Amino acid sequence: MKKRLDDLIDVLSLSTDERSTHHALLSFAEQCGFDNFAYVNVRAGDTEAFSSYPQEWQDIYFANQYQTVDPVITFAKRLLKPFHWSAPLWWSSSPEERKFYAHARQFGIVSGLSMPIPTEFGRTAILTLASKLPDFRFEGAIDDIRAATATAMVHTRLKGADPLIMRRPDVSLSVREKECLGWAARGKSMSLIADILGIKKVTVRYYLDHARRKLEANTTSNAIYLATRRGLI
Results as ranks from 00 to 15, higher is better:
residue 106 Q to T: 09
residue 111 S to Q: 13
residue 22 H to W: 13
residue 162 D to R: 03
residue 50 F to S: 13
residue 96 E to H: 00
residue 160 G to L: 06
residue 84 H to C: 04
residue 170 D to L: 14
residue 119 T to C: 13
residue 60 I to D: 01
residue 185 A to E: 12
residue 69 V to I: 15
residue 103 H to D: 11
residue 212 R to G: 06
residue 135 D to R: 13
residue 136 F to Q: 03
residue 31 Q to H: 06
residue 123 R to G: 08
residue 197 L to T: 10
residue 158 L to K: 11
residue 159 K to N: 15
residue 189 S to W: 00
residue 117 I to V: 13
residue 180 C to W: 09
residue 225 Y to L: 11
residue 87 A to P: 05
residue 100 F to G: 01
residue 3 K to F: 09
residue 195 D to G: 04
residue 26 L to V: 10
residue 22 H to R: 13
residue 144 D to L: 13
residue 74 T to V: 11
residue 161 A to T: 04
residue 188 K to G: 07
residue 223 A to N: 05
residue 131 S to N: 12
residue 207 Y to M: 00
residue 149 T to M: 14
residue 217 A to V: 13
residue 93 S to Y: 02
residue 168 R to F: 09
residue 134 P to M: 00
residue 181 L to E: 03
residue 126 I to S: 09
residue 175 V to N: 12
residue 203 T to L: 09
residue 3 K to P: 02
residue 200 K to Q: 14
residue 40 V to I: 13
residue 151 T to E: 05
residue 1 M to S: 05
residue 107 F to N: 10
residue 184 A to S: 15
residue 119 T to A: 12
residue 214 K to L: 15
residue 57 W to F: 15
residue 131 S to M: 12
residue 95 P to A: 07
residue 71 P to G: 03
residue 69 V to K: 05
residue 209 D to Q: 10
residue 71 P to Y: 10
residue 176 R to Q: 11
residue 57 W to R: 12
residue 143 D to Q: 01
residue 192 L to M: 00
residue 25 L to R: 05
residue 205 R to N: 04
residue 74 T to R: 06
residue 69 V to M: 08
residue 213 R to H: 11
residue 86 S to R: 00
